[in-house]
Design a protein around this nucleic acid. Structure first.
Length: 489
RNA sequence: CGGGAUGUAGCUCAGCCCGGUUUAGAGUACUCGUCUGGGGGGCGAGUGGUCGCAAGUUCGAAUCUUGUCAUCCCGACCA
């Protein structure tokens, strides 16, 4: 009908685009590369935010807000940092418009040129470290554990809804520490937070690891990441946590006096996840019928569709439903009763499937007679008729089962496409099939670069806590552990 | 930034090659009525378009020419 999705096998990337639009998550805007996040999509993002925010606070962080604009000179204070971002910065040069002399609209007033141009933040390290300089004098001011929820702009050439947009929403944590060890521990801790969130809430298994030098954040000494695998076999970086060493402290002269009255530069971390997680969520679980949402992130977990022939029947059904809703809410289950008379039940069934609502209840005249309700689960597309009495407890367990099942499905898929590869010839064949390839690598940027040029595959991460002697598949040089190769988003 | 394609109703598109029976169409969506209602309903009526924008050719342009803008796909670039 009107909302047919392209199937995944036919064209995976078209399927994704269709799904984002048709499930009403987001759409393209009048501004090239920027998206409008629609209420249903934003509701999912709010759930992501709420849980992450809770986890950040639980680990001692507080929220603050720093400006959207960054003086151009700030960006250039850290050499690697400016190198990494310069090519995709939006720049504010003027502060006033005036009426066009030809009477058609407005023009930039050439008189109103800014003395120093402002960059729209692509990330906030520079503005934040210039501020931290004033906040930190002594070890007693440390650690400084701050997060901000914000938008950032990176002027991308090619954009895709959620996965890569010119403006996106994210959170960025920026912390300052007295010792190298403490900062490193912080960076690793936040990686764990991300991984826990991805697995427990998004039901998305992730690999934890370190980035190779090529993939490292501009200005970091070490970048930790979580990498997820999408259903088409491509990898997606879902979150990063950076150990920044003293790079930014030195660039912005942020020093502190330690217990021994010795002056030193502070140690830093930064870490972030963005609306890109929405893309990861969509591509981890959804199917040809639409979105599949994990119950913990679904804007509503249960939808109730009444089936009736007249107002009397609707009234009778509504009465039962209105008894049930408080029982569900009491168990913390979010529920929507769709008694909209403008849409037919069949239309609603398809619509809520498209939107990934985990559980659908249908109640009609037959059910009223029998004291039952039809329960349909989105992840398996199965239906069963269940006693209405005590249904809330049944649904509570069912939601847990769904959360678990979609995680397991994603985990099993990842397992099935993760394999060891020990020769470059085999690599070139296997990489075409997608998935994670675990290979030995000699640790050099040159090798990684050549493999990328020849196969489009990159090192997604160097797994933590793994060791196995071997030889590089490309150069035959010795290697201490396997690394994860894949094609990536 | 290179290569390719497309701009016609809210959306998807036909019409363009070969200019004039086209007062610009279809499906879908929307509005009203009605029959319906357990998987995207049926019937009837109706609303809705400066044919991306600008200039040109012509008696006449959605249709031909040039320019321009925008979008999509494939590359390059990149967290």
């Amino acid at each position: 009908m009107a909302k047919e999705l392209t199937s995944r096998s036919e064209n995976y990337s078209q399927w994704y685009n269709d799904l984002v639009l048709k499930a009403d998550l987001a759409e393209n805007s009048a501004v090239r590369g920027c998206m409008v996040i629609k209420p249903y999509g934003y509701a999912i993002w709010e759930k992501i935010q709420a849980e992450l925010d809770r986890m950040f606070k639980e680990t001692g962080h507080v929220n603050a807000y720093f400006p959207l604009f960054i003086p151009k000179s700030f960006l250039s204070k850290e050499a690697a940092h400016v190198e990494g971002f310069a090519k995709e910065c939006a720049v504010v040069t003027h502060y006033r418009l005036k009426n066009s002399p030809d009477g058609k609209g407005v023009i930039v007033d050439p008189e109103a040129k800014l003395e120093e141009e402002l960059i729209v933040r692509p990330t906030s390290e520079t503005i934040i470290w210039s501020t931290y300089k004033n906040w930190i004098q002594s070890y007693r001011d440390l650690p400084l554990l701050i997060n901000q929820w914000a938008n950032v702009v990176r002027w991308e050439m090619r954009t895709r809804l959620f996965l890569r947009t010119a403006e996106f929403l994210w959170q960025e944590g920026h912390t300052a520490h007295a010792t190298e060890g403490e900062a490193m521990a912080e960076a690793k801790q936040m990686l764990e937070v991300y991984a826990t969130f991805a697995e427990n809430f998004m039901a998305m298994p992730v690999l934890k690891g370190v980035k190779s030098a090529n993939e490292r954040f501009a200005g970091a000494l070490e970048t930790f990441c979580i990498e997820a695998l999408m259903q088409d076999g491509k990898a997606l970086q879902a979150g990063t946590s950076h150990f920044l060493g003293q790079n930014f402290a030195k660039a912005f002269d942020v020093t502190f006096v330690d217990k021994n009255n010795k002056i030193d530069y502070v140690w830093a971390t930064s870490w972030g996840v963005s609306t890109r997680l929405m893309g990861a969520l969509i591509m981890s679980h959804s199917d040809d019928n639409g979105l599949v949402l994990p119950p913990k992130l679904a804007p509503f977990q249960v939808v109730i569709v009444p089936i009736y022939k007249n107002d009397e029947q609707l009234a009778a059904i509504s009465e039962k439903v209105n008894e049930l809703i408080p029982k569900l809410r009491k168990l913390g289950i979010s529920v929507k009763f769709d008694n909209n008379d403008n849409k037919k039940p069949g239309w609603k069934f398809a619509e809520y499937e498209l939107k990934g609502v985990p559980v659908r209840l249908a109640m009609g005249a037959r059910d009223l007679e029998n004291g039952t309700v039809e329960v349909a689960r989105r992840d398996t597309l199965t239906k069963e008729t269940v006693e209405l009495e005590g249904i809330e407890n049944y649904i509570e367990k069912l939601l847990d089962a769904i959360q678990e099942n979609i995680y397991k499905k994603a985990f099993d898929y990842r397992t099935s496409v993760t394999r060891n590869v020990d020769s470059y010839d085999e690599f070139k064949v296997e990489i075409e099939k997608g998935g994670f390839l675990l290979c030995h690598w000699d640790g050099t940027a040159e090798t990684e670069e050549r493999v990328k040029d020849e196969t489009k595959a990159t090192i997604r991460c160097i797994p933590l806590e793994a060791s196995e002697e071997g030889v590089c598949i490309f150069t035959g040089k010795p290697s201490k552990q396997r690394v994860v190769f894949a094609r990536a988003y």
